[in-house]
């Protein structure tokens, strides 16, 4: 049994257009590594310098992993993982709060 991962439109170029892909791993980090082995390029869009990118949201079931344990968040068979890019922007040219 595996984990279902929902992929947003902008990252479907790495999944041959698939909206959901299956993966496995005990933690979010291991799951991303597993996905990268079949969908090369995906990992770099999610992770930067060993951290989840600031403007990518990942949810395990209904929880934002930032409020769990980030990339170390445990994953269990049957969990559902959703990736969504943040919808963000604004007139500030450079100073982005929280980045």
């Amino acid at each position: 049994m595996a984990v279902e991962v929902r992929i947003p439109t902008i990252l479907r170029q790495y999944t041959s257009g698939a909206r959901t892909v299956a993966g496995k791993g005990d933690t979010l980090s291991a799951l991303v590594d597993d996905l990268e082995s079949r969908h090369a390029g995906l990992s770099e869009r999610l992770i930067e310098n060993g951290e989840l990118r600031r403007f990518v949201n990942v949810y395990v079931n209904d929880e934002d992993v930032r409020f769990l344990d980030g990339l170390k968040t445990p994953i269990a068979d049957g969990d559902s993982v959703t990736v969504l890019p943040a919808v963000a922007g604004g007139s500030a040219a450079q100073e982005v709060p929280g980045s």
Binding site: V87, G89, G90, A92, V96
Partner: peptide
């Protein structure tokens, strides 16, 4: 803005 462009997804 540049911010808008870099985060447009």
């Amino acid at each position: 803005s540049r911010t808008d462009i870099s985060y447009a997804s």
